[in-house]
Amino acid sequence: MNILVLGGTRYFGVHMVEALIQRGHHITIATRGLKKDNFGNSVHRMVIERSSPQSIAQAFSGRTFDVVCDSLAYCSNDVKYVLDSVHCKRYVMTSSASVYQLHVNTTESDFNPLEKSLKWCNRADYPYDEIKRLAESALFQAYPLQSSVAVRFPFVIGRDDYTKRLYFYVEHVVKGIPMFIDDIDVQMGYVSSEEAGRFLAFLAEQEYTGSINGSNGGTISLSEIIKYVEERTGKHAILSKDGEVAPYNGGVGYSLNTELASKLGFRFSPIKSFIFDLLNTFIEAAKV
C-alpha cells in the first residue's frame, strides 16, 4: 500500500515505520525535516509544517494515499488540516489514554467522541487531555465517512524514550537525588515503544473503525520499580516532599482493556515480561 506517515522519525513512530517497511509498503514520511532518520532508501521524504494548513495543502492537495498514519494530531484543527487536503482510504490517528477518566479495566466505551461537543482548536487552547478528546471528536463527527481509527495509548516507555520519565526514577535512585512521589503504590499501565509502533502498523492494514486501546498487559507500581532498582544497585531511594517532583505524579490506578485488539489478532505482551530488562538498561545509563 501507499502510506503517508506524519512524523515517524522518533520513538514509537520509528518502530511503526520499520514495521510498515518490513510489511512491504511504500512509505512517505512527512516531517519538519529537523531530525535525521535511518530508513535510507526505504522511504520517501517530504518537509511540512504540521500545524500549518497552508503547508499541508501545498504539499498534499490532490494527492491520494491508501493510508495516512498520523502520530502528530494533537488537536481538532490538526485533524482538519490533514483530512481537508489529503485523500486517503484509511486514517490511523495516535490518540491517548488521557481522553479517559481512567480506572482499572478502562474500555473503549468509557469515552465516546461522538458525545463530545466538537470545538475547533489549536494545541495551546486547552490542556492535553482536552485537546486529545477534541481531536477524536473532530475525526469521528466531522469526517464520519472516513475509514478511521484512533489509537489510545497510556504512558509509552522504551530505551528510546526522549521524555525520560521512567528514567527519572532510576536515575534519582542511582545518584541519590531526592524526589517527591505523591503515590508510590499506585498501579498503572504502560506500553512499550516497540509494541506501540507495531500495533499502529498492524492497524494500518485492518478494516476496524473507531477507537481502540493499546497497552501491555497488567500493571506495575512505582514502588515495585524503585524496589527493583534498589536491589540491583544497593542504593536507596531518597523520598522527600522537598525533592524533585516525579513525572508520573497525579496519576490514578488504572489499566486499559485490550480485548478488542486481541480480537483483531494483536496480542500485547505482559508489562513485567520486559520492563525489568528496560530498567537494567536505565541503571547502566544512570551510572555514567
Rank of each mutant, 00 (worst) to 15 (best):
V170D: 08
R232P: 02
L83V: 11
S193D: 14
I29F: 08
F266S: 12
V68F: 09
D66Y: 09
I275C: 04
S255A: 03
H25G: 08
L278S: 09
D125E: 12
S51E: 15
L114P: 08
Q22A: 14
R159Q: 14
L203R: 05
S85I: 03
K119S: 12
F153K: 01
L200H: 14
A124G: 15
E136F: 04
S269P: 07
G243T: 02
F199D: 10
T209E: 15
V47G: 08
S71Y: 12
Q22N: 14
R152L: 01
P113R: 04
V43I: 12
S192A: 12
D37E: 09
T9V: 08
M179E: 09
I212V: 10
S109V: 11
P247Q: 03
I177T: 15
N38Q: 13
E244H: 14
P247A: 05
I225H: 02
C69E: 11
H87E: 13
I131K: 04
E259G: 15
V43K: 06
R152I: 02
H87G: 09
V5E: 08
Q101A: 13
V82S: 14
E244Y: 15
V86I: 13
F60C: 04
I271N: 01
H44D: 15
I225P: 01
V99W: 03
D242N: 13
A237V: 10
F282L: 03
M16Y: 10
G176Y: 07
L20D: 11
F60S: 06
Q141L: 02
S51C: 13
V191M: 01
P247S: 07
L279N: 04
E18C: 05
I131P: 04
L256I: 02
R232G: 09
I226E: 04
D160F: 07
S269C: 10
A201R: 01
S269M: 10
A59D: 11
D66G: 09
H87S: 15
L260Y: 11
M188H: 04
H15R: 07
M16C: 15
E18T: 13
A261E: 04
M179I: 02
E49T: 14
T106A: 08
T64S: 14
K89F: 06
L20I: 03
K132R: 09
S95H: 05
G218A: 03
G158V: 01
L4R: 03
G218T: 00
L203S: 10
